[in-house]
Amino acid sequence: MSGAALTRAERIARLNDRARRAMGIACVVVATEGVRALPEADQSRLRELVETFDVFTPDNDPYGERDFGAIYQGLDGVWSTLRPADVALTAFWKIDTYDRELRFGSEDPADPAMTRRVLTIMLASEY
């Protein structure tokens, strides 16, 4: 499919996918204090699950832009994109779009020439 045939939402979704898969290169990454306080192995696993996240549904992605997701840690300590029966922690990730100077919201998130993405990873309790 050519770039001209993509919908605006699909162009944004592809740019958001690139941001997640190339954190720190294709976007600015911010981890909240709660995430930074987690053990290093948990932080690493969270980043890995954000990079590979593919559990988009109408509930968590109503506009088809793939800009939000939830990741869960079960009582057994295992992190997953699927909600376990017993949840110990929930983390959210969210991509926001800004102008190139990161001062205002982007006028056109589908245009990478005028948009910078910021990916925030936070504990649900910090929301």
Rank of each mutant, 00 (worst) to 15 (best):
L15E: 04
R14T: 00
E65C: 09
T115Y: 09
R36Y: 01
S106V: 09
R45K: 12
E65I: 12
R117V: 08
R45P: 00
P39E: 11
R117E: 03
I95L: 14
R11P: 01
D96V: 08
R14H: 07
V118L: 09
D111Q: 04
Q43L: 05
T115L: 15
R11H: 03
R116F: 10
F104C: 11
R11C: 11
R36G: 02
G24E: 13
F68Y: 14
W93N: 01
F53M: 07
D96H: 00
P84W: 13
G74K: 01
A85W: 11
K94G: 13
L75N: 14
E40H: 07
S80D: 08
R66D: 02
T32W: 12
T81A: 11
F56D: 04
V29W: 00
V35Q: 01
L46V: 04
R103I: 08
M23L: 14
R100E: 13
F56I: 12
V29M: 12
F104I: 05
A37G: 13
D42N: 07
A31L: 11
D86I: 02
S106E: 02
A9D: 10
L49A: 10
E40N: 07
A31F: 06
F92H: 15
A110C: 03
V55Q: 14
R18N: 15
A31V: 14
P62T: 08
L119I: 03
V55T: 08
L15S: 03
I25F: 14
E101D: 14
